[in-house]
Every structure is written in structure tokens, then in C-alpha cells.
Simulated scan of single mutants.
Amino acid sequence: MEFKVESDRVRSDLAFGKLAISPSEKSGYRPYELFVSSLAGCSGSLLQTILQKKRQPYQRLEIKVSSVRNPDYANRIEQLSLTAFVHTKEAFTEQQAEKMADLVVKNCGMIQSIMQSIEVKFVVRMACLDSDRY
């Protein structure tokens, strides 16, 4: 990968398209947004694969992320909590959810890359489907 540093952003032309990175939301994606997005993307794709292999039907997956940052140390990220909501009509147990979450953490390269420096919590929750929306 190659990146070009400009006055207000860093740019790259990647396989999928152009990427602009900037501390200003008006000039590109913020580094924090890209960092969290990579974790959500990796873990979400992996959870989707796990659900398919377990033949657990679902209609939608959503991941919500919260973080704790330390303003005294360059606003570094100290904790990340990722909660995956599996919208399904077929229930699964809390034990099954914990096993899926453990598999995601164990096999997600992005999460494994940061485990030594950031406390990461990944949880799978079943979400009831709203029959009016489907």
C-alpha cells in the first residue's frame, strides 16, 4: 500500500477505491473511525461465517462499539466493547452466544493484533425481530 501525505489529509488509492484519512471530518475519515471499523468489519464477517457454518438463520447483524479513551496519554484507546446483535426468529442459548463470541475473538486477526495493548470485549446478543420491519 502507498499513501500520499497532503496538507490536511493522507490519501491512498486502494483496490476498492480512494481513501482519505484526516483528523478533520470534512477532509476524510478519522483514524479512530477507521481503526474501529476494521475491528467491526473483521469480527462481523467472521461472526457471519460462524452463523452460516452453525446453520443459525438470521435476518440481520448489527455491531455496536463503545470505547474508553485516555486523554492524558494521547487520547489512546484503552477499552473497546463490541456487541453483535443477531436479528433472528430462531433463538439460541446464552452458552451458544458465548461460544460464538469466543470463536470470533480467537480467530479475528484484527482483535488478536491489539489484545496485548487494548482491553477488548466481544459479546453476541440475540435481538428479536420487529415483525413490522420484515
Rank of each mutant, 00 (worst) to 15 (best):
residue 108 C to H: 03
residue 45 S to P: 04
residue 60 R to H: 04
residue 106 K to N: 12
residue 48 Q to S: 14
residue 62 E to I: 02
residue 1 M to H: 14
residue 108 C to R: 00
residue 110 M to W: 08
residue 104 V to E: 04
residue 18 K to L: 10
residue 75 N to C: 00
residue 79 Q to T: 11
residue 8 D to S: 12
residue 92 F to W: 09
residue 27 S to Y: 15
residue 109 G to I: 13
residue 105 V to R: 03
residue 84 A to Y: 12
residue 65 V to I: 15
residue 95 Q to V: 12
residue 96 Q to I: 08
residue 108 C to F: 01
residue 84 A to R: 01
residue 6 E to R: 03
residue 23 P to T: 07
residue 104 V to R: 07
residue 56 Q to W: 05
residue 89 K to F: 14
residue 129 L to Y: 04
residue 81 S to D: 11
residue 29 Y to T: 08
residue 79 Q to N: 09
residue 10 V to R: 10
residue 16 F to M: 14
residue 51 L to M: 11
residue 2 E to V: 03
residue 10 V to C: 09
residue 66 S to L: 08
residue 86 V to K: 05
residue 59 Q to E: 14
residue 40 A to L: 15
residue 91 A to T: 11
residue 91 A to H: 12
residue 20 A to K: 15
residue 14 L to R: 13
residue 27 S to H: 15
residue 91 A to L: 15
residue 20 A to P: 09
residue 38 S to V: 06
residue 42 C to P: 04
residue 74 A to Q: 14
residue 132 D to V: 07
residue 97 A to G: 02
residue 69 R to S: 08
residue 58 Y to T: 00
residue 32 Y to P: 08
residue 25 E to Y: 12
residue 112 Q to D: 11
residue 26 K to V: 08
residue 30 R to W: 07
residue 83 T to F: 04
residue 132 D to P: 12
residue 7 S to N: 13
residue 101 A to M: 05
residue 108 C to D: 07
residue 115 M to D: 13
residue 24 S to W: 04
residue 71 P to A: 03
residue 121 K to D: 02
residue 4 K to R: 14
residue 70 N to E: 15
residue 123 V to D: 11
residue 131 S to H: 15
residue 79 Q to D: 06
residue 35 F to W: 10
residue 80 L to C: 01
residue 24 S to Q: 11
residue 36 V to C: 05
residue 124 V to P: 08
residue 117 S to A: 15
residue 100 M to Q: 00
residue 79 Q to P: 03
residue 126 M to Y: 03
residue 71 P to W: 11
residue 105 V to N: 00
residue 69 R to F: 15
residue 109 G to Y: 09
residue 126 M to E: 09
residue 63 I to N: 00
residue 129 L to Q: 01
residue 17 G to A: 02
residue 7 S to E: 15
residue 67 S to L: 04
residue 28 G to T: 06
residue 9 R to E: 08
residue 70 N to I: 14
residue 94 E to F: 13
residue 112 Q to P: 02
residue 95 Q to E: 15
residue 63 I to W: 07
residue 31 P to G: 03
residue 22 S to Y: 12
residue 46 L to A: 03
residue 126 M to P: 05
residue 48 Q to W: 14
residue 61 L to M: 08
residue 66 S to A: 07
residue 112 Q to G: 07
residue 51 L to C: 13
residue 61 L to S: 00
residue 36 V to H: 07
residue 35 F to C: 01
residue 69 R to L: 12
residue 30 R to P: 05
residue 14 L to P: 11
residue 84 A to T: 06
residue 48 Q to M: 13
residue 19 L to I: 12
residue 20 A to V: 14
